[in-house]
Write a protein that binds this DNA or RNA. Structure first.
Lengths: 210, 210
DNA sequence: ACAGAAAACGCAACCGAGTAACAAAAGATT
DNA sequence: AATCTTTTGTTACTCGGTTGCGTTTTCTGT
């Protein structure tokens, strides 16, 4: 009875994507703060209230694509092979995403993606919103680690550390690309960083003399 | 010639504190979003533009006190005893702050402080701003760890993990107090959590089976 | 003590984000 | 086709934050 179709739903979907796409284009051209939502609405040929019916805030026009990855870490832990350790699963997954040049790893040199990241990291408002998304990721991962057998405090500490490490790795990769290197050229270093980071997670900062 | 005095500076200082104090009182009474900056300005008997000359944004009226702790972790590392490891210095310092019931540890049951924390954690806008402050703390700490001999990536990873762990610990303590326990009653648990967290930092998640 | 420079302030007007109310239009249902 | 529901546009509003400008207050030099 519910074939996921319906002209209405399709139109909504298209409007939503049109809005986000239009907004990002404008933001990339002139900067997040230099473009008003009224302009975005006009360019997408909808009214301002309609825009806000689709996106609760201006920032979400940009972050809408990122919300798709929400809860990925928790999913990886929950979907790991029987007997596999959570950290091992996450580590393998990260290396996979690295090879795929997934933007969430920071290792994607498609010009549009690079410009997009410049926009994110260069706009405090977007960065702040982004960290709120990360907080939810963290909570979900903590729950998943709890299911995997960790006690409450360990699960929360571990989740926080893992999410944090991913952010640092992504930022590191992005900085290399921002310096002009190609993704292919730094792939090896990125893998090494990831290995190092996961070893640090697994073996502690103690082994590095801190 | 410059005795740090001057009527002007003193007045500015007082106005600044009056504004922050007035704002926090009002926010605690009715909630951050239910009080307009115009009201705050009126209650403090200054004009709206003047308020914004003292605080760049509404959120900073609340966070102004917290900014004082800015860079504390980095300072601890830089000021550690010769031969002492950074992690050991940070660990000792955290335990000290715990015993002092310092609000930054989350372990302070003074009613006003508790209400203040409710305000912080219960207002997304404040939380977001707070994490931006934490980002700077992280950068500073990374620099300090770098000076202490860690290579770039390790310093950044370590800094991120340490700051994150502090946040998790503080939040954990706050949750216990929010459940009605007294600071004295949970002090022991708080120390245990901190020990556990720092052991995790030092020895890695591996020892806990993750 | 007094005049002038510099800083801080208040006022009023303004811009942009986000919301509310209501009317108009479009899709779904029979 | 007629009706009901959902979505949309218009207008107008609140609130955070800024700007320009004239006025008051404090600091400085004599």
């Amino acid at each position: 009875m519910n074939e996921e179709t319906g002209l209405r739903e399709r139109k909504k979907q298209r409007t939503r994507e049109l809005l986000s796409k239009t907004a990002i284009e404008l933001f990339l051209e002139r900067g997040f703060d230099q473009v008003s939502v009224a302009e975005v609405a006009a360019a997408a040929e909808v009214s301002k209230p309609t825009l806000f019916r689709y996106f609760p805030a201006k920032e979400d026009l940009v972050l809408h694509g990122i919300a798709d990855h929400q809860g990925e870490a928790a999913r990886v832990v929950r979907g790991r092979a029987p007997g596999e350790r959570p950290l091992a699963a996450l580590r393998a997954h990260f290396h996979e995403r690295l090879d795929a040049h997934d933007p969430i790893t920071g290792l994607c040199d498609v010009p549009a993606v690079l410009a997009y990241r410049d926009l994110l990291y260069g706009t405090p408002g977007l960065l702040a919103r982004l960290t709120l998304y990360a907080l939810e990721d963290e909570r979900e991962l903590a729950a998943a680690l709890g299911e995997a057998g960790a006690d409450g405090m360990t699960a929360r500490l571990g989740a926080a550390q893992i999410i944090t490490v991913h952010q640092v790795l992504a930022r590191g990769n992005w900085e290399r690309l921002a310096d002009g290197a190609s993704a292919a050229a730094v792939l090896g270093d990125a893998h090494m960083d990831a290995d190092r980071a996961y070893e640090l997670l697994g073996d502690g900062l103690g082994v590095r003399g801190l």
